[in-house]
Nucleic acid binder design. Structure first.
Lengths: 135, 135
DNA sequence: CTACACCTTCCCATCGTTGGAAGGTCAAGA
DNA sequence: TCTTGACCTTCCAACGATGGGAAGGTGTAG
């Protein structure tokens, strides 16, 4: 199975598969006589694991750690849970920040007439001298 | 007022001020005889506008458009509102995605014992073959 | 005069991803 | 067999926004 087929099978672009290999996320695959990368079932399994972890928004560093734990049959689930909860905490922070931004911005937009007139609370607000954001 | 003072006054690092200038977000400032950039009140005002727009998470492209509208006294508020609402929509999408990720991940973590035992629903889930994320 | 803080331009790194160029390989059809 | 087209290979570069740092000039205070 060459890289194009593996890409189709896993949903990871061939470019990305090579990149993951280059940063040590994936082991170098076998090569055919002419140098083509060749992927077997286990490699595909690993690729799908990476794919799903990316979907979850894990960083490369986190995925590296998860892969290590994944292939360690004696890993304590504590370590995996810690990584997951760390990511959940990151997500919560991000969500909160974005929600706050959205609320302020939506409110400004609500108060903007949105017609031909130049007056606009949005620009008015952007003019504000606010060193601490969104106060 | 040189770039360092402008940076302190606006909260934008000097590096970023130069970068914004290089991409055409800011007009080239006056220079002293020895080549130092010199910022006046209007330039500071513009910088603060950019700072606040960044705080809101607007992209450089959006900020460019907002700056253009800002300096156009006859702009229709409609255009500003459209940019703001577009950004609100982007934020909503992102918030929804992240929330969904967080919920799934938090649930997996909740079901993970998190002790010395190797069994772990998180890794179990990451193994799944899921082409469409989070189904 | 010297020290130090600042300024200038330049290049490089990040992170994850995408694009392209230049060249080799494979499989199908004429 | 030759050609065509789709694939593969490696390498280089860009994105957006930011940070670090080198090498060299400038400003100011002691």
């Amino acid at each position: 199975m060459n890289i194009g087929e593996a890409a189709k099978a896993t949903g990871i672009p061939a470019k990305m598969i090579r990149y993951y290999e280059s940063i040590g996320l994936l082991p170098p695959p076998n090569r055919t006589g002419s140098g083509y990368r060749s992927y077997d079932g286990e490699a595909l399994h690993r690729l799908r694991f990476v794919r799903r972890a990316r979907d979850f928004g894990f960083s490369m560093k986190q995925i590296k750690a998860l892969l290590r734990l994944w292939s360690d049959r004696k890993r304590p689930s504590r370590e995996v849970k810690a990584i997951a909860l760390g990511h959940v905490a990151e997500l919560n922070m991000k969500i909160e920040q974005l929600t706050q931004l959205r609320d302020v911005l939506a409110d400004l937009a609500r108060r903007c007439s949105g017609d031909h007139r130049p007056h606009c609370p949005i620009l008015r607000d952007l003019e504000r001298d606010a060193h601490s954001p969104l106060a």
